[in-house]
Amino acid sequence: MSFAELFDSARTWAYTNLPITVGGLVAVAVLTFLCVNAARRRRRSFNLARFATANSGASAVTGEKALSWEPVGQSYADRRGAVRREGQPVRVVLAATTFRNGVCDGYVVDRSTGGLKIATQVAVAPGSTLQVRAVDAPDTVGFVTLLVRSCRKADGHYEIGCEFEKTPPWNVLLLFG
């Protein structure tokens, strides 16, 4: 059997069994890619190991600094658990036992799934609890309990940073803006 006859019979078999031929070619391509990638990784790890042994004679001070390294502390913004959203101020009714009439009004100026920032005319002590409800909320929606985390004076009003005691449902969160 000559080479030409062998080539013709192989080509005929490949055309009649096209899915098997294509699958075999894809498998060969994938295996080639994986082998080349593994060889690169081995070569890179070998170079890194050689670099580490060459630099193992570093001073004791450098090694001591490396052992006592600590990451830089995160800023307050990085520690925030939920994304803060600003938007149009939403008028709310606040209820607390510390208020003269038991209730006062305010505006939600900043909100997240973790809490609210409320602007009001009355200062509230950090650590106390508030009940808040959007003025435009339907009568079926009750008050939401907030824990006061901070209170600061700003331009003739107080900004109260509050955390939800228990995160309310999404439809109630949307009422705050």
Rank of each mutant, 00 (worst) to 15 (best):
S2W: 03
E5T: 12
S9R: 14
A10F: 03
R11Y: 03
R11P: 01
W13C: 07
A14W: 07
A14T: 09
T16Q: 06
N17L: 02
N17Y: 08
P19D: 15
P19V: 12
I20Y: 14
I20D: 15
T21H: 13
T21N: 08
T21K: 05
T21E: 15
V22R: 02
G23N: 13
L25G: 08
V28I: 15
V30C: 11
C35N: 05
C35E: 01
C35G: 05
V36I: 13
N37A: 15
A39S: 05
R40H: 15
R40A: 14
R42E: 12
R42Y: 14
R44T: 15
N47W: 12
A49M: 03
A49E: 03
R50W: 00
R50Q: 10
R50I: 08
F51D: 15
A54L: 14
N55Y: 02
N55K: 02
G57T: 11
A58W: 03
V61K: 02
T62F: 05
G63W: 12
G63I: 06
G63L: 13
G63S: 09
G63Q: 11
E64H: 06
L67G: 00
P71H: 06
P71M: 04
G73Q: 11
G73C: 07
G73D: 14
A77H: 03
A77K: 07
A77I: 09
A77W: 00
D78S: 14
D78F: 07
R79I: 13
R79M: 15
R80C: 11
R80Q: 14
R80G: 09
V83N: 07
R85D: 06
E86V: 12
E86N: 14
E86S: 15
Q88V: 07
P89I: 09
V92P: 00
V93T: 11
A95D: 10
A96T: 08
T97D: 04
T98F: 01
F99W: 03
F99I: 03
R100D: 09
N101Y: 01
V103G: 01
G106R: 08
G106S: 11
V108F: 10
V109K: 12
D110G: 05
S112D: 08
G114K: 13
L116I: 07
K117F: 09
I118A: 11
I118S: 09
I118K: 08
A119S: 14
T120L: 05
Q121T: 11
Q121I: 08
V122I: 15
V122P: 05
A123E: 06
A123D: 06
V124R: 02
V124D: 02
V124I: 12
P126L: 04
G127A: 05
T129V: 02
L130E: 02
V132N: 09
R133W: 13
V135R: 03
V135H: 09
D136Q: 08
A137W: 09
A137C: 03
P138M: 00
P138Y: 01
D139F: 08
T140W: 06
V141P: 00
F143A: 15
L146Q: 04
L146K: 07
R149F: 02
R152S: 08
R152P: 00
K153N: 08
A154Y: 04
D155M: 12
G156T: 08
H157R: 05
I160M: 10
F164G: 10
F164W: 10
K166W: 03
T167N: 04
T167F: 06
P168I: 00
P169V: 01
W170E: 12
W170I: 05
N171A: 03
L174D: 10
L175Y: 00
F176P: 02
F176Q: 02
G177C: 05
G177P: 04
